[in-house]
Amino acid sequence: MSEFEPRIVAFLCHWCTYTGADLAGTTRQQYPPSIRVIHLMCSGAVDSIYVLKALIDGADGVLIGGCHPGDCHYQTGNYKARRRLAILKGILNQMGFTEDRVLLKWISASEGKLFADTVTKMTNDLKKMGPNPMKQLWNA
């Protein structure tokens, strides 16, 4: 069997992290092609439903990217995202997902390298964790 290639769904905020991801590109930072980016206006617009659905549908990991604390372009969206995720993680654990499959990361528009490193590290961590157990359910 070929090596397991994790699939990550990322929700990036329009202002900081998406721009940071673009900067990773313009500066040619290389990272694994594991990630699929969905662009939203703010990390505070990431509904827990999206995260859950991504995992249930078989994504191996979910990345939420937002502006650094104090830098959210809508004042407090990132804090809301942080609080929401803390609660969601409790639920995920109970559902049998490892909470580590979901990562919230503050990445600014100037942190292209950090974006690339985050994806690289997350991909490697997921490889160690193995595929999303949900997938087996679908395939059973």
């Binding site: 991801a21 673009d22 900067l23 990773a24 590109g25 313009t26 040619r28 930072q29 290389q30 990272y31 694994p32 092609p33 980016v37 690339a116």
Partner: peptide
């Protein structure tokens, strides 16, 4: 975005 977030960052794959 298949340039900044794809072609440029996965050059060897």
């Amino acid at each position: 975005n298949i340039r900044e977030q794809c072609a440029f960052v996965h050059r060897d794959l």
